[in-house]
Write a protein that binds this DNA or RNA. Structure first.
Lengths: 231, 231
DNA sequence: TCGGCCCTTTGTGTATACAGTGAAAGGAGT
DNA sequence: ACTCCTTTCACTGTATACACAAAGGGCCGA
């Protein structure tokens, strides 16, 4: 794998998991030293992160990790609903029904076995499979591209929520409903089920952040020592 | 302005205006020599173009100008309608009505004076102003970002259409209807007017390309000699 | 004459050197 | 003591050098 790819994936992961907090300065020389590559791959990685919106140039301070406010949360979900409703509807109209029928059954099965912590990991992987299936079966590469560009931001938001078992179970049922509607070839119902799921998800996220103006992850993250070095 | 910015803007413009045809190989050393900068800014420019989807890596052939098929045309308009309907609706709900009232009057005025060729330029600039107004007044930075990422592809498609005066006049009326609906604060009507405009626009584009499997610009473009050098 | 192997050339990926600019800190003057 | 100016440092932007990989062509052998 190329060094620029490694730098990109590592920085991306660290931003999504909040190990690199919003506002952290991503100086080229510092990151190059930390990641063990030269400045050139780091520059390419930062370019890609800026194109995704995970990083931004902040005046003269250089490249910083993008901020994430309650306003961002609401705007991201507004766009997400628009895109995912359309994708679900198109997949219901054009997609491979058997694929979503299988996903439907997997979600029903996952709901019953969401007790163990390792099952939560598997559940998130299943959600990712449904996302990928909608991307592919909606038959619109540009719509899928927009959704893929949106997803890293949503993954970052996910870390804000507490993983309450009852919410995960409800989420599984909502995903099952989406998959069922797509499998039935019902675009209107698929879009409606998407709205239902996203409304519940947004409400849960809002509740997790109740009162706070600035967003912060649910479980405090083991902070790296690098930002103190970067002073 | 930075050299990488100049390289990016020039390559972008040449791709949008079809002076760099789809499939053209964008070799780093070749473009560096042609644009009068070194490989480093060219690399950054190519990265940005690939992030936008205007260029893509094609196996071992390196970076090439992205292809554009009839399928792309239809998928781009499908996504465009989804995003612009939402943006128009949000702008109608939240936006500054006076701004769209003024744009409405400008479109009515433009329709009456679309005879001179320089008026066509001014008309396209006015369309750009409406787009920018929707971006800003929809109150959703992520939606605006998605729209801005979509627009270079649409600009490339625009070159496929013949600028027939009657179509431009109809387009002006359709844009006026959108601006009026937003100015009236009517989200449903704004979305509907957007669908009306895009349907007519897509139909006109399809008609301009009737019968051809591969897309080509309406007026043959003065081809650069560079692709023959790049063999 | 045809096929296979080797060599050369071209292009990308990475590292590093150099220059220009902006910011911050310290010293001097009022 | 405070403010302003100067100097220095650090960072980005750009250029270039080097290594490695692949593809194409030419040559040699069968």
């Amino acid at each position: 794998m190329r060094a620029s790819d490694r730098a990109y994936h590592q920085l991306r992961q660290e931003i999504i998991t909040w190990r690199l907090a919003p506002g952290t300065v991503l100086a080229e020389v510092e990151q190059a030293g930390r990641l063990g590559v030269s400045r050139t791959p780091v520059r390419e990685a930062l370019s890609r992160l800026m194109a995704e919106g995970l990083a931004a140039t902040e005046g003269r301070r250089g490249v910083v990790v993008a901020e994430l406010s309650v306003t961002d949360l609401e705007q991201l979900f507004e766009l997400r609903e628009t895109l995912e409703r359309k994708a679900a509807g198109l997949a219901a109209a054009r997609g491979d029904r058997g694929r979503f029928r299988r996903l439907h059954e997997q979600f029903l099965h996952a709901e019953a076995s969401l007790d163990a912590p390792e099952e939560v990991e598997a559940y998130y992987a299943l959600v990712g499979e449904l996302d990928a299936a909608l991307d592919e079966e909606c038959g619109n590469a540009y719509l899928a591209l927009s959704l893929r560009q949106l997803r890293p931001h949503l993954q970052r938001l996910r870390r804000l929520a507490h993983d309450q078992p009852e919410r995960l179970a409800a989420s599984a049922r909502e995903h099952a409903a989406i998959a069922a509607a797509v499998a039935d070839g019902n675009p209107g119902l698929a879009a409606a089920a998407t709205t239902v799921h996203l409304s519940a998800s947004l409400k849960h996220l809002h509740h997790s952040q109740s009162g706070q103006g600035t967003l912060a992850p649910a479980h405090s993250v083991h902070l790296t020592t690098h930002e103190s070095e970067s002073r």
